[in-house]
Amino acid sequence: MVDALQGLLQGLFGSLFPLVWVLLKIVLIIAPLLLAVAYLTFWERKVIGWMQVRIGPNRVGPWGLIQPIADGLKLLLKEVVIPTGANKGVFLIAPMFAFAPALAAWAVVPFNDTLVLANVNASLLYIMSITSIGVYGIILSGWASNSKYAFLGGMRSAAQMISYEVAMGLALVVVLMVSNSLNLGDIVNSQGKGYFAEKGLGFLSWNWLPLLPMFVVYLVSIVAETNRAPFDMAEGESEIVGFHVEYSGMAFAVFFLAEYANMILVSTLASTLFLGGWLSPVGFLPDGILWLFLKISAVLFFFLWIRATFPRYRYDQIMRLGWKVFIPLCLIWLVVVGCWMMSPMNIWK
């Protein structure tokens, strides 16, 4: 069927075909992603509702399933208020800065052996550099709002994101060291080899077990990186004023979408780097894209779970955790893994 479609499009567009084909693939990634973002908000409200012995949204459509669409429409129809004295251009660009990296990073994410938009060698590096741009959305929105609350909130969130980026990057360095590659596809494939994988217990060969401290550091860092509870200094709904106080309507919705798109992205990365991507956990079941989606959902559920469970961290405790606990831990584990790889007990040959 894919070949037939390819042939049809080739006849239709001629020399422009490669461009059309790539655009089609981009749409095939972005459209389900946006749908997933919408329904993640719904799922979050439902899950947290159940955990707190409530029902959650159940009024719009069957089981409340139309709720995210209704929310989106509501935000779309509201006015975007631009404060007096705000820097209008920067004020409107800032949400795009927050959202665009979360979409652009998907270019190199592999869904299975062959299903990837751009199979580049340095894909992990690409993801790290693209996601590091996301912090501009926060810092610019804080500044452009011409409000001291938004400005201080922006500074606070930006400092938090930069701090945890360091720990996250160091955790990734350990992963690429044991996989001997920066290509996400190769990183997944390297997790399918080893003592346990040959015994049919593939899930014990994935990176999460031998690199358990790094996995924990990464899981906590991505929560801090996406400004989610218990590290939600950006937007404590009832008490802390964050960088997007001055935003309303669609401009605010884009920040909201960016947060959830980022959550899905980092969950995908966690599944790819530590949980074996599309690989099947046991030998007697086939590998496939379904496993990747299951793992992403599990990590996303973890996000919602801890949001309903833990109280918020104090800001100085967040920074202490990032700089004084995670970074030294990562540096020590980096040396430990380096020595391990050079010793006769190396398991990543």
């Binding site: 550099s129 693209i130 912090v135 500074m155 930069i162």
Partner: peptide, 18 residues
Amino acid sequence: AMALVLVYVGAVMVLFLF
């Protein structure tokens, strides 16, 4: 190219903007 974005755009310029 990616190191330039990662280091200068992602870290140095953010602190500069601060």
